[in-house]
Nucleic acid binder design. Structure first.
Length: 364
DNA sequence: AATTTCCCCAACCGCGAAGTT
DNA sequence: TAACTTCGCGGTTGGGGAAAT
């Protein structure tokens, strides 16, 4: 395929946009809509290339753009989505209403990525950086001898460490001991899962309420392939989930979560996930018979799972509790400072005890 | 107060996919 | 089917503000 000739350099302005230029672009699009970016700047009286106009519009001037700090749940969603989609910023942005791919990309590179690195988590694989952490000696010696032992403390890992990630680290290590090739297999498997998932379009979380957005909204499929996390966890996931469900209902002290309404909020909007092959994007769309094997039950505030994040994400546009609802997570605002986020998550992790039922010992 | 360093993010660039002729 | 055009994505850059010295 021939490459498009780059926009004519001669006479075209580059660099920051002036308020006047912004207004011209806005006015033109308000009157004519957008479509042909190639001819738009000329028609709008702008000395810019179409590419620059499109970028300015989509990343800055669009009326439905949400500015300002990322909310905690947005950040969490980005991490979870990135673990599945990788650097597919546009795909991630499609599930975060009001956020642009550029904004998410920047936020990832400047905040989240660095924080994950500080926590000893590889931001690419979302797995603990085993090269930095001598986990085997730690985990092997003391962890499952003490039900009160906190893995995050052991790892010296700070906030935002998903318990599943921690579990992955331990299972990887134990499996690697038994089978030296396990790690390589897991990585390969993980990659395959991503390839599969990336070829499948995720439904948008919230359909844009934007009169100027002429992009056709893809139909929300009945169910969304959710193989990645499952395969990421490998065969042990099923056992883990079973254990974890029991563990959650009996022992998990998610006081913070419950007192903040987080746990219930995270789980209330999704239905049972059968065989981990799918998770529902909208209960009203698909209503499969409850499975005996469903381990992520809805309306069970004691459950905390991967699906929790996606359940939150999957809140339909008509949901009374949108992503940025003030009713979620934090009472008055979901926005928290960097320190607050770390502190909050850290507290959560410290309260998240590691009883036998967590199943870590099973993999030792 | 002046200078340097660091960090953020808006904008650019190059490429590939998709659409059109 | 090939050539061409348009669009969108992801990686990268550099200007400018904030923080540190």
């Amino acid at each position: 395929m021939g490459r498009a000739p780059c926009c004519e350099k001669n006479g075209l302005k580059k660099g920051p946009w002036t308020p006047e230029e912004d207004q011209k672009l806005i006015d033109y699009i308000h009157q004519n809509g957008y479509g042909n970016w190639r001819t738009l700047p000329k028609n709008a009286g702008l000395q810019r290339c179409g590419k620059s106009c499109r970028l300015r519009w989509t990343n800055y001037l669009r009326p439905d753009i949400k500015r300002g700090r990322f909310a905690f749940e947005e950040e969490e969603a980005i991490i979870q989505l990135h673990s599945i989609l990788g650097n597919k910023w546009s795909a991630i942005a499609a599930r975060l209403p009001g956020r642009t791919d550029n904004e998410i990309k920047n936020y990832w590179n400047t905040h989240i990525r660095k924080r994950l690195l500080r926590m000893g988590i590889d931001p690419v694989t979302h797995s603990p950086r085993l090269d930095l952490l001598d986990l085997s000696s730690i985990l092997g010696s003391s962890l499952y001898n003490s039900s009160q032992m906190n893995l995050s403390r052991l790892l010296g890992v700070q906030p935002l460490v998903n318990p599943e990630i921690l579990r992955l680290a331990s299972s990887l290590l134990s499996s690697n001991r038994e089978n030296p090739n396990f790690l390589a297999q897991n990585v390969q498997e993980n990659q395959m899962s991503r390839d599969v998932l990336q070829s499948t379009e995720l439904p948008p979380l919230v359909q844009p309420n934007n009169q100027f957005d002429q992009t056709p909204i893809p139909e929300i499929p009945n169910c969304v392939p959710f193989s990645s996390e499952t395969q990421l966890m490998g065969q042990n996931m099923e056992q883990f989930s079973s254990d974890f469900t029991n563990f959650s209902s009996q022992n998990c002290q998610l006081n913070e979560w419950q007192s903040n309404g987080m746990a219930s909020n995270l789980t209330q909007d999704y239905g049972p996930v059968s065989d981990y092959g799918y998770f529902e994007s909208d209960q009203s769309i698909m209503d499969p018979p409850p499975s005996e094997n469903s381990n992520f039950q809805s309306h069970d505030s004691n459950n905390f799972s991967f699906a929790s994040v996606f359940s939150n994400l999957s809140t339909p546009a008509s949901s009374p509790t949108p992503l940025n609802s003030s009713s979620t997570y934090f009472n008055s605002s979901s926005i928290a400072t960097e320190d607050e986020r770390e502190s909050y998550c850290s507290n959560m992790m410290l309260k998240f005890e590691m009883p036998e039922m967590f199943g870590v010992s099973e993999f030792m």
